[in-house]
Amino acid sequence: MLKLDIFLSALANGLLTGAVYALIALGLTLIYGVLHIINFAHGATLTLAMFAVFVMHSAFKIDPYIAIFMLTPLFFGVGYLLQRLVINPASHGDDSNILLVTLGLSIIFENGLLAIFRSDTRSIDVPYGFDVIEVGNLFLSTPKVIAFVAAFAVAAALWLLLARTDTGKAIRAVAKEKTGAALCGMDVEHIYAVTFGLGTACLAIAACLLMPTFLVNPRIGNAFVLVAFTIVVLGGMGSIGGALAGGLIIGVVESLSGLYFGESLGQIGIFLIFLIVLLFRPTGLFGAKA
């Protein structure tokens, strides 16, 4: 019976972590789905947001859950300006240039943080950090349950925004046919930047949800960036539902392979899924278009 308990708790933990992974992947897949670019700086931007949470907590005693309401608009602005002022003008509309520019951004963020904060691993100390919720025989970490619920709330909000608002309509129009949208009087550059801002804002929320239970160092983004790409590829590039399902699957895979093969090889499971999906089913499990 003990074995089953361990298995179930690993499964539950995987689902809880997977929801935050899904939130990170959501930002990536939104940017891909609309701008058709791969944002290589996604992981480094997440690290930046996590350090922002860390600084706000350690310098100003602001709780990470309060910080959500400050960092989300701030990172929306960061994303908007990055796309408008750096990525778009520097890449001359060429795909491989965009890849290189976002790689350059990730190098700058990661090493800028390294220069300022050094390579030490840091975490924040919140009073509820070790609280648990008891469900049957399972003990679930409260911050992780909050993160799970919040991640789905954000996904729902994002879906509502895309489906029900004018901005959402414009985003979908630009994603489908950017020339047509431009001819109808939409400011494509603006919509691109808004989308990039939304994707970056997802990272700020994810960072606030992660920090009570995670630790951060300047290189942590690397661990997340391939996980996020795996989820996006698994779920089908540009699909929100796919990103959610992919995130949960990857969270469970990581947790279970960590349980059976040990911590370091747990990561291998993710990369193998990534390679296998890309090489043999590049449209993803749920994707229809190539």
Binding site: V86, P89, A90, S91, H92, N97, L100, V101, L103, G104, L105, S106, I107, I108, E110, N111, G112, L113, L114, A115, R118, S119, P218
Partner: peptide
């Protein structure tokens, strides 16, 4: 010594090269 400063410069250089000296 400050770790990472040289790489920050590399990153800036990469973006500048792509933008202005393809």
């Amino acid at each position: 010594s400050i770790p990472g400063v040289d790489l920050v410069v590399f990153g800036v250089l990469l973006i500048l090269c792509v933008a202005f000296a393809p």
